[in-house]
Simulated scan of single mutants.
Amino acid sequence: MTQVAKTDVDYLAAAAEMVRTSQKITVMAHLNPDADAIGSTLGLTLGLRSLGKQVTPLLSDRVPEYALFLKGAGEIGSELPPDLEIDLIVCLDSAGIDRVGRIYDEDPDRFLRHPILNIDHHRTNPLFGTAYWVDAAASSTSEMVFRLLRELEAPIDVDAANALLFGIVGDTGSFQNGATTPGSLITAGELLKLSADSQGIAYHLFERKRFAAARLWGQMIAGIELDAARGIVFCFMTQRMLLESGATADETEGVAEYLRGVEEAEVVMLLKEDPDATVRVSMRSRPTVDVSAIASALGGGGHRQAAGCTLPGPMGEARRLLVEAFDALAIR
């Protein structure tokens, strides 16, 4: 591990120098990508290409439907070609190298053969890589990528601006959650000056739904359960619900945020059943509850008010593990 600097400004400068001296760059982010993972990956890719870099963007899981309006999102790859020449791997928004997912799991030794620059805003990041720039005070990795591109004096066109604003708006919940900072608002303002489409981004992130998705939301919300003693609302998505509604698992994006408004709940736990019966968990909370502690205890990660993990099924067992971790950590 090379500790490259002592201050945030120095970490940024060192990260910029590492990128500046590399030509063939592979950019990737965490599995089950959210808006920030997608926005930071795409924004950095477009920005570095404007400098003449050869950039390959990769995500282990496909880009969700709601993000495909972003120019270039559909071109993000999902396989690391065995013959791809790499000067530098930039790992974004990943609180651990294993969070990259399948691309890393299939050939972890390959990652040892290349320099890795770790750029992230998760406070649980273990500072992996050849060098790292981790800023837990940043709203999002997309905000950090904007600062990096400015440091590199890279042109930021409207497509890159849209991608970065998409990531910031996603991680701040449209500037309504605890990730919202003066820096995030200033950066958003700069991106708006570059003609980023804030209304279009908000529509695709929070409003646009297919009829099938609306049916799925109805099924899920109809089945919510309240654990009043613990202040937890549980919500479930099963494979049968997907079959009956015709929706996809990606289209559950936003359900947990919606349920965070339930007056009796301090925590929302959304459990989504995968085809192999494993359960993906998304947690949201009020400012008084740190759900990242629960996620970390169960092998996941995230932020104080937004975190997640993957658990063995069935649903009942996953719920038991969540409650057990909640109680063991004396969350309330």
Results as ranks from 00 to 15, higher is better:
L127W: 10
D105S: 14
I86T: 12
L127R: 15
Y66G: 04
D87L: 09
S78V: 11
E65M: 11
G96V: 00
D109N: 13
I89R: 01
R123G: 08
L84F: 08
V134A: 11
D107C: 12
E106N: 12
Y66S: 10
L112S: 15
P126M: 11
P126W: 10
R102A: 14
R110V: 05
G129L: 05
S94V: 01
K71T: 15
I89H: 02
V100Y: 00
E85T: 10
L68D: 10
E75L: 15
D98Y: 06
L117C: 05
A131M: 08
T124K: 06
P115S: 06
I103S: 03
I97T: 03
D93R: 01
N118V: 02
E65C: 08
I97A: 03
V134H: 05
P82H: 14
L92Y: 00
R102S: 14
A136E: 15
V100E: 00
C91F: 03
H114E: 06
W133P: 02
H121N: 11
S94W: 00
I116S: 01
L117D: 00
I119M: 08
R102P: 07
I86F: 04
L84A: 12
G96D: 02
F69W: 13
R102V: 08
R123W: 07
D135A: 09
C91D: 04
S78L: 13
P115M: 04
G101Y: 01
L112V: 06
E75C: 09
G129H: 02
D87E: 14
D135C: 09
R110W: 09
F69Y: 15
H122S: 10
I119S: 03
I97N: 01
A131P: 03
G101F: 01
R99M: 03
D120V: 02
A95E: 06
P64V: 13
F111R: 04
E85W: 07
S78C: 13
E106F: 06
D83M: 13
E65H: 13
L92S: 00
L92N: 00
E79C: 08
R110P: 05
H114I: 07
G129Y: 01
A136L: 09
I89P: 00
A67L: 10
A73V: 06
V134E: 06
R113E: 15
Y66D: 08
G77E: 11
R102G: 09
C91P: 00
A95C: 12
F111H: 06
L88I: 08
R62G: 15
D107M: 10
R62N: 14
L112Y: 12
R99V: 00
F69T: 09
G72A: 13
I116E: 02
R102H: 12
E79I: 14
I76F: 08
D87T: 13
G96H: 00
W133I: 07
E106C: 10
G72V: 07
G72L: 06
Y104A: 04
P108K: 11
P82M: 12
E85F: 08
E75V: 10
E85H: 11
T130H: 09
Y66R: 10
I86L: 05
V90H: 01
A137C: 09
V100S: 02
H121Y: 05
L112R: 15
N118I: 01
P82A: 15
I116H: 01
S94K: 00
F111E: 08
D98R: 05
G72Y: 04
R99K: 11
